[in-house]
Write a protein that binds this DNA or RNA. Structure first.
Lengths: 329, 329
DNA sequence: CTGAAAGCGCTTACAG
DNA sequence: CTGAAAGCGCTTACAG
């Protein structure tokens, strides 16, 4: 930058202003600075800028896994919205491990990001403590039950599962099983299960057909289905904690030659892209993961402008998407 | 840090040393510094550290899209390996747009990352120029045809498609169609098509059954299949440029009640997780996306140690995975 | 094994 | 509209 200033015949702060606040610089000087920068191939050093201004225009994102369209959508929404404002994303994956998460947050904090986006609202106690002490906007996503460290955006998993459960019941299914993913400390999965249970209770149906599997993927759906059938051979519908599990169930039905939705109704959670593609179409809950990312970005950006913009707890709701995997009732 | 130094009764450079090179500090002092840091909740400011040392321990990753298991695997491998060494990942998505990519690289460079990982080896001319001028290790991934900016890791898409094509031929299929994703300037897709064509030529089969679709997803597979059938009702096998397209073809077969592999053989490219799950199992090319990420990380880390470690062009090869979507021959 | 000084490349008030 | 000075919080030689 000193080189640019010399070449343009101005001071280095004029160069700085010429980039940051061009309106405060005369057109002629702006021109000369731009030309000098171009000739020198000058790339402003944001590291130095960050140190001097104590604003980084970086946001740290902490996700449990990349292998899940839900968080991918959120990441994409976050990244897109932030990029528009010249922010960049620092990404860490924790593998659903609280201690990894705590380590990630600590490492992120060293970079002095302007914001940190966490997945879920259950963290190592040290995380909340450290984060509250730090000068950083924090958004917890995918969970709406506090207490929150700072801000949050999500939806009610319980309400969504309840709505889905009621739909399945309304279609005349009577022996409804649930494939759960009871990951320790993942409250959102407990909430889904609880909503489901309520729907069955309301209808006076047996709520005990639950298979807890340790896999949120295809194999989890398959083994969940098998476990449920072993307990209830007359099972007529299966709801899964994730779309991928539900797809696993559909695949297993295809293997067995079982027609869906006649022999078995199937529903999932997430509305991944494949849900609309797989025959006969998967009934599921659309959760607006991308919207969560965008909203998280807005919250962080709003905080930068000073003061909070609107409410720091955002409920994005959900939508039930009805497809061929449930019969007409 | 000054606070920590004061509290521990040492100079701030001793604090710095105590963290960076503990061996050079006496155990007693190390102890006092650690204690003071703990009490003060001290988090070293890496921004300042980076500026002073001109090393950032950040790596920028530029991917066309997050919605594709291939790059996700690479990202994951990269992120995992880098995290072990205390590096962090700066992520940008470009949407297969060269200008977005150029902008992303410019923005990344402002952070002075120690390395940049690009997808593919075809970039805006400005990218190569800027990057060569910068003090940064560059790895181009998923393509092995240079010229490269710096280093590269990938495999031969042509050889992989050729091997897959030969396999399909060996299974007795004779009217083999190819669903292409001819994205402008995505050489790797051209290479796949070329390998496929060679396999058909060798066998004296008609290589003209190609459907170019603008969608690398499920819908692309479906529309590709329809286009091919319109031209060749006796089509007996379809190879797709991506697994997701191939899954789209399998779903369309299911909708039509066509048995796979009897009525139609199907093969894909990528070995996404679903390939093993979807009935009857998708024959495909396994491309080791995760390995690409790990290798890219190694190349960058090696460069940090000074000097190049081994060859800067890494061929990770591929593997044909045979599953039920092709008949026994 | 420990420390005083200079500097990394910017930005932030404060003047003019 | 432009500039001289100080400082952001570390690390890098260089001494001792």
């Amino acid at each position: 930058m000193a080189d640019v200033a010399r070449r343009a015949g101005v001071s280095s702060m004029t160069v700085s202003r010429s980039f940051k606040t061009p309106d405060l610089v005369s057109a002629a000087v702006r021109e000369r600075v731009a030309e000098a920068a171009r000739q020198l191939g000058y790339v402003p050093n944001l590291v130095a800028g960050n140190l001097a201004s104590s604003r980084s225009r970086m946001v740290g994102a902490v996700v449990p896994t990349l292998a899940n369209s839900n968080f991918l959508g959120t990441l994409k929404g976050l990244s897109d919205r932030l990029r528009q404002e010249g922010y960049q994303l620092l990404l860490t994956e924790t593998g659903y491990d609280r201690r990894e998460e705590a380590a990630a947050v600590a490492a992120l904090l060293g970079r002095r990001p302007d914001g940190i986006v966490l997945t879920g609202a259950e963290h190592d106690p040290a995380v909340a403590r450290t984060l509250r002490g730090a000068q950083v906007a924090v958004v917890e996503t995918w969970d709406l039950r506090g207490p929150f460290i700072d801000m949050a955006v999500g939806f009610s998993h319980r309400a969504a599962a309840l709505a889905l459960g009621r739909l399945v019941v309304s279609r005349g299914y009577r022996r409804i099983g649930y494939v759960d993913f009871p990951h320790p400390q993942l409250r959102r999965f407990r909430a889904r299960r609880s909503g489901m249970r309520k729907a069955l209770d309301e209808a006076g149906l047996d709520p005990s057909l639950v298979a807890a599997v340790g896999d949120e993927g295809y194999a989890g759906g398959r083994s969940g289905l098998e476990a449920l059938l072993a307990r209830a051979p007359d099972l007529d519908a299966v709801v899964c904690a994730t779309d991928v599990q539900a797809i696993g169930v559909l695949f297993e039905c295809a293997r067995r030659g079982w027609p869906v939705p006649e022999r078995l109704g199937v529903a999932g959670f997430g509305d991944f892209e494949i849900a609309a593609e797989v025959p006969p179409g998967l009934t599921t809950v659309r959760t607006n993961g991308r919207g969560i990312g965008i909203a998280a970005a807005e919250l962080i950006l709003g905080r930068q402008e000073g003061g909070r913009t609107g409410t720091p707890i955002v409920d994005l709701g959900f939508e039930i998407v009805l497809r061929g995997s449930l019969r007409d009732g």
